[in-house]
Structure formats: C-alpha cells, structure tokens
C-alpha cells in the first residue's frame, strides 16, 4: 500500500498544547464547577460589600490600601486554593478515573503536551475566577475612594496570580499521584488549606524557625504587599504572663516569597510530569 505523506504528518507539539488547552478550557467553561466557583466568589465579595456598606467601619474606610487589604487580601488566598482544587485537583487523575485518557493518550501526542495543555486550561479558568474577585474589589474601592488604585494592589494581584500558578503546579502533582479524582482534590485542599498553615504556625511561632519551605509562607507576599511600610522579616513579641514566652512572626520579603513560589512551581511541575509520564492506564 502506498503511504501518503499526509498519513504520517505530525502536528507540532506547541500547536498540540494549544489544542489540548482550548478543549479542556471549553470543558471547564461548560462544567457546573466553573459556575459554582463563580458563585462562591460572588458570595464572598457580596458579603463583604454588604457588611461594609451596612456597617461602614471607620477604620476600614480611612485608607484605600487598608480597605483593599480587607476586601481583596483577606480572602484571595482562599479563592486561589479553591480554584486550584476545582480546576487542578482532578485534572490528571480524572483522565484515569473517568477514562477520558483512553480517548486522548493513544494519539501522536506526548504526555507532556497533554499535561501542559491541561495546566494552561486550568490556569486560564482560575485566572478568570481571580479576575472576577479582583473586579469586585476594584469596584468597591472605586466607590469609596474614587478613581485611584494604589500600585500595591496591582502588585498583590500579580503575586496572587503567581501563587495561583504555583498552587496549580502543586495540585497537578497530586493529581498525577492519585488515580482517584476525589482523593486528589481532597489532598490538594487539605495540604494547601490546612497542613501548610499548621506548618507555618508551628515552625515560626513555636519553634522560631522561618518556614521558607512552605508554599503558603511564600504566598504571604500577596497580603504583605498591601501593608505600608512592608512588614519586617522577623518580629518577636513577648507573650504570656510576665512575658516569659516570645512569639516570633516571620514575613517573607517579596524576593523570598516569589522565590519560594517559583521553586514550588518548577519542582512540582517536574514531579507531576514525571509521575504522569510513568503512570499506566490499567483497569
């Protein structure tokens, strides 16, 4: 049989990344979870908007930075973590559990291309969620303080997006580790929402050790940048009767926080990809 060149044509990996990202995003965009996440964001934003409008707390409404620190900074990490769990928690494990991998993988496409394409789709969906939350915070700020927004807010949005990228990388690694979607999602949420926060508290407050190894410690820059002047790297204060016990609070400087997030992003991306490359589609 004559072999035509078309039969053996290959699409470039870069183009394939775009295809996988496009159709996975479409899948996210049409799924219920996307609208549930939007609803959560609107609920949190709406609640904050309502409480501030109703109570009009003087301490909050005196400075735009303090106001944004509350309406944006207080909950943005939670939004990032929930988005990560919603869009990244089962991104890879569902290919095994739901058997969609049997449709996609046996094609002339590298697994790394599928992984990156799915990561970009999850990042895009999560970024939309983040922007919706930022839009409500901006609208509130414009209402109370006029058409000026402090630069620190834009830096905070940028840092939140970097945290999102790192957290998604982390969630994808867990998703590659487990074949069960629910376990993968649960593990991501538990780790990012509870375990790292416990580690941060125990390491800094009790052991007096800077938790430079924790992703949530690095993500502290999202909130810290909204404080002027920027909080000191190390702050100790005596607590307890007679001040016999010293409580140490560490705040990652911007460079350190971003370095932690960058390292998490890179290490978890390599680990997740390595796991996915080796994972087998068995019953």
């Amino acid at each position: 049989m004559a072999v035509t060149s078309e039969r053996r044509s290959r699409e470039s990996s870069l183009a394939q990344v775009g295809v996988v990202a496009k159709y996975n995003f479409l899948n996210y965009f049409r799924a219920r979870r996307f609208y549930v996440m939007i609803a959560i964001v609107l609920l949190i934003s709406g609640l904050l908007t309502f409480v501030i409008a109703y109570r009009r707390p003087a301490g909050i409404l005196t400075a735009d930075l303090g106001f944004l620190s509350l309406v944006w900074g207080s909950f943005v990490s939670l939004i990032v973590i929930l988005s990560t769990a919603f869009f990244g928690g089962d991104a890879i494990s569902s290919e095994f559990q739901n058997r969609t991998g049997y449709f996609l993988v046996p094609n002339p496409i590298r697994r790394s291309v599928i992984y990156v394409g799915k990561w970009i789709a999850a990042l895009t969906a999560s970024t939309i969620i983040l922007l919706v939350y930022a839009a409500v915070a901006i609208a509130n700020s414009l209402y109370y303080f006029g058409f000026t927004l402090p630069n620190e807010f834009f830096l905070s949005v940028l840092y939140a997006w970097i945290f999102l990228a790192a957290a998604l990388s982390f969630a994808f690694a867990f998703s590659s580790l487990f074949k069960s979607s629910s376990i993968a999602v649960l593990m991501s949420v538990i780790m990012l929402l509870f375990v790292f926060n416990v580690i941060d508290t125990v390491a800094s407050s009790l052991a007096g050790v800077e938790p430079w190894f924790s992703i949530t410690y690095g993500a502290g820059v999202v909130q810290s940048v909204l404080t002027v002047p920027y909080p000191p790297h190390v702050f100790s204060t005596p607590v307890g009767p007679g001040g016999g016990f010293s409580l140490t609070i560490f705040t990652a400087p911007v460079w350190e926080g971003l370095a932690i997030l960058g390292i998490y992003f890179a290490v978890m991306a390599v680990l997740g990809l390595w796991l996915f490359e080796r994972k087998e589609f068995t019953a």
């Binding site: 899948n27 739901n98 058997r99 969609t100 049997y102």
Partner: peptide, 9 residues
C-alpha cells in the same frame, strides 16, 4: 476498551 469523551463536548 471503551474510552470516554469530555462530557461537555
């Protein structure tokens, strides 16, 4: 086997 397709496509 019997592959599944993304359900919303």
């Amino acid at each position: 086997e019997t592959p599944e397709i993304y359900s919303s496509l």
